Simulated assay, not measured.
Amino acid sequence: MNLETPALIIEEGQVRRNIAKMAGIAAACGVALRPHAKTHKLPEIARLQIGAGSKGITTAKLAEAEIMAEQGIDDIFIAYPIVTEAKLERLATLSRRINVIAGVDSLEGATAMNETALRRGVPLQVRLEVDLGFGRTGVPYDHALELAAAIAKLEGLQFRGIYTFRGFFMNGAPTLELEAAGLEEGRLMVELAERMRAAGLEVRDVSVGSTPTAEYAARVPGVTEVRPGTYVYYDRMQAVLGSCTLDECAAAVRVTVVSRPEPGRLVVDGGSKTFATDVGPGAPPLHLIGYGHILEEPDAVLERVSEEHGMVRVPEASPLRVGDVLHIIPNHICSTVNLHSRVYLQDGGQMRELPVAARGAIT
């Protein structure tokens, strides 16, 4: 295939190995695996995950779930509060077609959802999101029992349990102590579930675990499900965290050197429209250098990006020249995928193009 750059290349064999690895971890721990599809946004990859043993998938937005359902994925958890009338109507319609669970984190949101469920005659399944210190959505841990009890009384809703997203955070800050963070995440959620059950609530789901913590949180007795996402491709951030090796990273952006204006600097044809910049250089605890790892020149640094240009610092003796092709593992693959309308799956000498079906599905 005569491939123009920049282009996002996915090594299909490595994807399959990554899928099998996480499926094995979940099976060994006796927990369900419900991977987050926000990383790949591809129904084909979701089907590979389900074929390897995943219970279903997780999405961030309702639109992602709708796209996946259109392609035959029939068990989806939407890990995001759905509160507007139009979206609640869409949720009710989707719930007639497939098994779908939605996230809630407020009584106002749950009440609106309950009104839609009763009006449409469609019971809606919900999980309560709990904030363990990440500071995003989620009810504060100490208020979760009270809110769960109120939600469980709403006649149109079926309260399924609790979930959290904590990432590699512990004690309110990023950490490289992934095992400790994962075990604490699982323990806190199981203890909360036990208090809810003691108060008379039925808690079937205790869902935890991102890519860096899933294998550890899954070990905690009482955890029922883990929801890693990035593991399917991995990225430079996960490699620095220790979740994987660079060799396990299945995705790289192929770029071309378009300029070498001086010996220590060259320019590639991928900038902020090509590489995600949400995980940038320098921030603790990762202290990443640049916006990606350049496979052909590990000592080079993608140190600055504008929309269409990537400025790379190279050793002055580097043999790279205009027209050379490079492959760069991005810092954060999830946001990078969302910048590309298509990806190229490579398997040995074969390459095929796939549209990123759920790209930009933000509603």
Rank of each mutant, 00 (worst) to 15 (best):
L3Q: 10
L3H: 08
A7L: 03
L8E: 02
I10N: 01
E11R: 11
E12R: 14
R16L: 15
N18C: 08
N18P: 06
I19D: 04
A28V: 02
V31L: 15
R34Q: 05
P35A: 14
T39R: 05
H40K: 05
E44P: 00
R47Y: 04
R47S: 14
K55V: 11
I57H: 08
T58E: 10
K61A: 04
L62E: 10
A63T: 13
A65D: 09
M68H: 14
D74V: 04
D75L: 02
A79I: 12
E85W: 02
E85F: 03
A86N: 01
K87W: 01
E89Y: 02
A92N: 07
S95L: 05
I98V: 15
I98N: 13
N99F: 06
V100R: 09
V100M: 08
I101V: 14
G103D: 13
L107G: 14
E108C: 01
A117F: 11
A117C: 14
R119W: 04
R119N: 12
V122W: 04
L128N: 09
L128Q: 10
L132A: 15
F134G: 11
V139T: 13
V139E: 04
A144M: 11
L145C: 09
A148M: 12
G161M: 05
T164E: 08
G167P: 12
G172N: 12
A173F: 08
P174A: 07
P174N: 11
T175Y: 00
L176S: 03
A180G: 15
A181I: 00
G186T: 08
M189R: 04
E194T: 04
R197L: 01
R197I: 02
T213K: 00
E215S: 09
A217H: 03
A218K: 03
A218C: 04
V220E: 09
P221K: 05
P221A: 09
V223T: 02
V223G: 02
T224P: 05
E225C: 13
E225A: 14
E225D: 13
E225M: 12
E225Y: 01
V232E: 14
Y233G: 04
Y233H: 13
D235V: 03
L241D: 01
G242I: 00
G242F: 00
S243T: 01
D247T: 10
R254D: 05
R254Q: 15
P261Q: 07
L266Y: 12
V267P: 00
P284W: 01
L286K: 00
L286Y: 02
I289G: 07
H293D: 05
H293Y: 15
I294L: 12
I294C: 13
I294D: 13
L295W: 09
L295T: 06
E307G: 09
G310A: 13
M311N: 09
P315L: 12
G323F: 05
D324V: 02
D324T: 06
H327T: 11
P330T: 05
P330D: 03
I333D: 08
C334T: 14
C334V: 12
H340R: 07
H340G: 10
Q350E: 10
Q350C: 02
